[in-house]
Each structure stands twice: as structure tokens, then as C-alpha cells.
Design a protein around this nucleic acid. Structure first.
Length: 254
DNA sequence: ATGGCGCGCGCAGCGCGA
């Protein structure tokens, strides 16, 4: 089973890229972030024609998450139960016995911002909830845009980004707390190329200059990590005209 | 040199992303 996550930065704009990528990469399950669509506008028919069922939780202009699957989706739940949040950032569903959680972690803006405080609170709530989800669902995958570069090797210029949002120690500690629940960063289960990133700023030709961060992740419970045969980042869609600033991240489960 | 790009909204230019 091929699992993937992709922050599309507007599904309305990126639908042609998504359809092209689905046929090329042939993922079985795809978690999307920043769909920026109300549920009534979700392109259900186009995706069904491509062979995918959809679950979605969206809002106008900001945020919005979705799970696409070639196999039936069951037990869909939106949000973090018990954590009140207007922002549509979490969606869960079960596919072929795997519990899939799609997350769009808040950006945080800057470490002195109220949005940064919200990000850390949000991550604490996610962690507390996932502890129980891991007990309920041994085969658990948490995929999404975490807005955290876990280590310096995930950053093109660690000195410039030191203590900045996406790289600050409290954010990295929150990421390590997720791993400590019993989740593995599937990308690091394998040898990977140098300068492997999942996001590049639109400005300054950052992509061409390999100035990126690895902030999109596929975390797997131990039973799933044991079945993980490969993990990669597909930079092909980032080369297209009007690309998303994020690339899809993939994990293959046997 | 702290903006540079792209998106939504909505029709000018701002908020936001990361």
C-alpha cells in the first residue's frame, strides 16, 4: 500500500497537477492539506473518475484537509476530539485496516507570535490524542504538513534558521514527543539523498537553488514501520508551472 | 537590502503561508 501526503496550496488551482500525479505515482492513499475549499466545492466527481474515494474537512480561504483512497474509507473523524478548533486541520479514516490521520500543523508565523503559542498548544493536544489512538489502532499512520524541520540536516541553512519558526527547539521537542509515543519518521528508515526537502519558498528561485526544508512527514506506528519498504519525496510536481510550494512525500507499506 | 512569490478575496491591496 502506497501512502502519501501533499500540501497542495489550493486544491482548486492544483487539481490538474494532482490528477496528473495520481496517475503517475499511483498512490493508494493520499492526505492533502491546504485545500482551501468549502466541502460543497470539493472535486468529488473528478477524483472518483480518477479512481479515488474522498473524505474532506474544509473551509473557505484557509486550511482544509482531505484523504483520498482507492479502497473504501471508513470511520471518518474530523478534528481532534475534545479540542475545540475552528481551523480545519485534522481528518482521520480507516483504509484496509490502517488508521490514517491527516494533519496540517499550524505554521506559527514567528516565535514571538500568538500563532506560535497556538502551534505549540495544538501540538500538545495532538500528542495527547495520538497516545490513545495508538493504543486503539496498532496500525496507525500520521501524515501531513507538520511545519517542523526535525533536525539540522532537514534545513538547507541551519545557521540562518536556528531558533526560527519551523526549526525552533520547542517545535523540535514537540516533534520528538510524537516519536516518543511510538511513531517512526518513515523517511529516516532508509538512506536518503543529501539535501532532501519537501518545501521550498516561491521566492528567490529557492527550489532551483536547493534551498528547502523537510517539513512534511509520514509517521508510522512500529507495526507499520516494520512493514515499510521504501520512503521518498517526489520533487517532480515542484518543477511544473504554477506548482505547490510543497512536494508529495511517499511511504510504501507491504 | 526583511522583500522577493503565490494564494484567496474581490476588484485594491491586504493577510497569510513557511
Amino acid at each position: 500500500m502506497r501512502l502519501a501526503t501533499w500540501n497542495v496550496n489550493s486544491l482548486k488551482v492544483r487539481l490538474p497537477h494532482l490528477l496528473d500525479w495520481l496517475s503517475r505515482a499511483a498512490p493508494d492513499v493520499v492526505c492533502l492539506q491546504e485545500t482551501k475549499l468549502e466541502d460543497g466545492s470539493f472535486p468529488v466527481n473528478e477524483l472518483r473518475a480518477a479512481g479515488y474515494e474522498c473524505a474532506f474537512s474544509g473551509q473557505k480561504t484557509y486550511n482544509g484537509v482531505a484523504i483520498l483512497s482507492r479502497l473504501p474509507l471508513a470511520e471518518t473523524v474530523a478534528g481532534i476530539p475534545g479540542y475545540a478548533d475552528e481551523q480545519k486541520r485534522v481528518l482521520s479514516a480507516t483504509v484496509a485496516g490502517v488508521r490514517v490521520v491527516c494533519v496540517y500543523v499550524p505554521n506559527g508565523q514567528s516565535t514571538d507570535s500568538d500563532k506560535y503559542r497556538y502551534k505549540l498548544d495544538w501540538l500538545a493536544a495532538l500528542s495527547a490524542w495520538l497516545a490513545g489512538e495508538l493504543r486503539r489502532h496498532p496500525a496507525l499512520a500520521v501524515l501531513g504538513d507538520y511545519n517542523i524541520a526535525p533536525e539540522d540536516r532537514d534545513v538547507y541553512d541551519p545557521a540562518a534558521w536556528k531558533d526560527q519558526v519551523l526549526c525552533s527547539e520547542p517545535e523540535r521537542a514537540a516533534f520528538r514527543a510524537l516519536l516518543a509515543l511510538g511513531l517512526r519518521d518513515s523517511f529516516r528508515l532508509f538512506e536518503q539523498p543529501e539535501r532532501a526537502y519537501s518545501w521550498w519558498d516561491y521566492r528567490m528561485k529557492a527550489f532551483q537553488r536547493k534551498m528547502g526544508l523537510r517539513i512534511d512527514h509520514v509517521l508510522l506506528s512500529e507495526p507499520l514501520a516494520g512493514r515499510c519498504a521504501a520512503a521518498s519525496i517526489d520533487v517532480q510536481p515542484r518543477r511544473l508551472d504554477r506548482p505547490s510550494d510543497h512536494a508529495p512525500v511517499i511511504a510504501d507499506i507491504t
